[in-house]
Amino acid sequence: MTTLKQQLSTPHVLGIKDLTPEDIRLIFQTADEFKEVINRPIKKVPSLRDITIANLFFEDSTRTRISFELAEKRLSADVINFSASSSSVKKGETLLDTVNNILSMKVDMLVMRHPAPGAAHFLAQHIDASIVNAGDGTHEHPTQALLDAYSMQEKLGDLKGRRIAILGDILHSRVALSNIFCLTKLGAKVRVCGPPTLIPRHIAELGVEVSYNVRETMEWCEVANVLRIQLERQNIRYFPSLREYSRYFGLNKALLDELDGPRVIMHPGPINRGVELTSDVADSEHSIILQQVENGVAIRMAVLYLLAVSRS
C-alpha cells in the first residue's frame, strides 16, 4: 500500500456530501488493491495493526455490520462491537456519554449506525476519534453509495454520462441521498422514480430528474438501483398497500423483458422479494446484488485504511 501517498480531504467519512470527486476516486483506487488482497488465499494485511475500532450499532444491521467487521479484521485492526436498540439508549444514557465511555478505553475509530439523521455529525462535533457513518437514519450511508458506484463502474466503466435510476422509497432512504451525491459527483445522470409521496419535494434541486413512471424510467436507464421499501421507518402511511406498490412500482421480469435490452439491477438489501423486486429479477444474470456485497468489504477496507492514514 506504500504507493498511495494521497489522503482524504476529510477527517471523517460522515457522508458523501463532504467528499470530493478526488476522494471518491482515491477510495476506489484503494479498494481495487484491497479487492485483490481479499481474493488471495491469505486475506489479511497488517495495515491497521494497533488500531482499535468500535462498531456502534444503534440500529439493527446484518450485512453492513458484518461487512465492516470483516473489513476491519482483514486490516488486522482490534475490533469491539456494541449494539443497542435505539429506544433503550434514548431512555437511558445519552449517545455522547455512551461514546465517551467507549473512547476512554482508547478506541481510535468509530463505525456508527444510528436511526437519527445527523447522529454521526453530532458525534464528530464532540469527540476526537475518526468516525465512519454506517448509516444515520434517513440521511446518508456513504459506504453503501461508494460500493454501489464502485460496482457500477466495474460493470460499465467510467460513470460520466451514464444513466442511473434509483427506484422506490427515496424519502426514507439514506442510500438514495448518498447515491445521488456520489453518482452526480462522478458525472452520472441520475433519475429518481417512485410514488410522489415517497419522493422528497426538493430532490430535483440536487440535480436529479424525477419520474413517477417505472416503465419509462427503465426504458431510460442503464442501471436500476432498486431501494427497499422502508416500512419500519414509516409512522405515516405514504402509500396504500404493498400490493399496490408492487403492482405499480415494483420491478418484475415481464416489465424487463419488454425493454430493448438488459439493464443492470442493483439493490442495497435486504430485499423485500415480491414487493420492490421479484425473485426472478433479483437472481437474474443481470443482477449484481451479490457483487455489491463483495465489493462492500473492499470499499470499507479502503475507507478505514485511508482514515487511519490521515490520522497518523
Binding site: P117, G118, D136, H139, E140, P200, R201, H202, I203, L206
Partner: peptide, 21 residues
C-alpha cells in the same frame, strides 16, 4: 408539520430530515 424538524427546503433534503412546509 408532523415529523418535521426544520424548514422544508433544500436543507431538509440534504440533511435527510423531514421538513416543516
Amino acid at each position: 408539520s408532523a415529523e418535521g424538524q426544520l424548514h422544508e427546503g433544500l436543507e431538509s433534503t440534504l440533511m435527510g430530515v423531514p421538513g416543516i412546509p
